[in-house]
Simulated scan of single mutants.
Amino acid sequence: MTEKINSFPQVLTIAGTDSGGGAGIMADLKTFQMQKVFGTAVVVAVTAQNTLGVQKSFLLPLEMIDAQFASLAEDFHIRACKTGMLGDAAHVHQVALNLQKYDFGPITIDPVMVAKGGAPLLSQDAVATVKNELLPLADLITPNLPEAETLTGIKVQDQSQYPKLAHKLQDIGVKNVLIKGGHASSEQVKDYALFADGSDLWVSSSRIHTERTHGTGDTLAAAITAQLALGQSLPSAIKIAKKYVTKTIKETIQVGHGHGPLNHWAQ
């Protein structure tokens, strides 16, 4: 009976809220819904945020982080999970402890460091904690170029260096790496995946010139997480997620005055 009750694919996002609805847990839950999985959440931080930027943020008490993890573990069968905004070293550490305590399936780490509008979402002292405690737990890490450069210390001149970044992240302890190329200046947005078995994959799309890209990284990682919960292989999950995100940018909606949100309804 228990297995029948929990037979529907369930996933988890561990991140911060976005009161503007475009990024963070809000984007993750919208993405989960569109990917036809049931989404749950551990709220690490609450932000006062809109398309113009982050005005204020508040990190939840550590005991509340623990309580949310315990509550989910008691009742749900989480098949895959992802992280987003984790705030500071203490919260990264607490999340890492809980991910070791509970089996919530493959773990995708989106090492969120800076909001689209430029506000810091991870303290400087937390970068070492992410590298030492969180990345070794990850089945997949999905950094954008600035995040990958911060984690590896390697400055990228062009796309030919993506494999170098990915190998360096594997040396740190991550099994699989997806370098997101959206911050590059090329007209073809190329993402590079390096897998645990040494194989690799390039996925690309034509650049869409728009400011309505708020929550792109969250949405991509959430879509990958959903596809893994549905039983897709990691390469297939990445390809499906990339196509979905491209459509959410292309089929734009007009919301807000700044870096607008994606269209999560895109089919």
Results as ranks from 00 to 15, higher is better:
A15Q: 02
S123V: 00
R79C: 05
A41C: 12
Q100E: 15
K116W: 02
D197E: 10
G117N: 09
Q161G: 00
H167P: 00
V177D: 09
A15P: 00
L262F: 01
A96N: 07
D75E: 13
A226L: 02
I208H: 12
V177G: 06
H209F: 11
K190M: 10
I14Q: 00
T83M: 05
A266S: 15
S160I: 11
M26E: 15
K180S: 03
A221H: 01
H209C: 05
E3L: 14
K250A: 15
P146N: 03
Y244Q: 04
H93G: 06
A70F: 05
L262Y: 03
K190D: 10
G258F: 02
S186W: 04
A184M: 14
D125S: 12
T40L: 14
F38Y: 15
V54F: 00
P106S: 12
G118C: 07
K56M: 12
H167L: 14
I224E: 00
L194T: 07
T216G: 05
Q232K: 15
L72R: 02
L228K: 05
V114P: 01
I224F: 02
I154K: 07
A223N: 08
V92G: 00
G173W: 11
L99R: 02
A23S: 11
A126R: 06
A223K: 03
Q33S: 13
T129E: 14
V245S: 05
S71C: 13
M26C: 13
A266T: 02
F69T: 08
A226C: 09
L234I: 10
D200K: 11
S19Q: 09
D171L: 12
A119C: 01
Q188L: 15
T31S: 12
L121V: 01
T2E: 14
A128Y: 10
F32G: 00
L165R: 10
S160A: 15
D125L: 07
Q161M: 15
K180E: 02
Y162I: 10
N144Q: 09
I238W: 07
E63Q: 13
A229S: 12
E251M: 12
L201N: 06
L178E: 03
G24C: 04
A48N: 08
S206D: 14
G39L: 03
Q159H: 11
G22C: 07
P235F: 06
V112N: 02
T248P: 04
D75P: 05
N263V: 09
K180H: 09
V114E: 08
G20F: 09
A128I: 12
A221K: 00
A221Y: 00
L60H: 00
E63I: 09
H259S: 07
A193V: 08
Y192A: 00
M26I: 08
G24S: 06
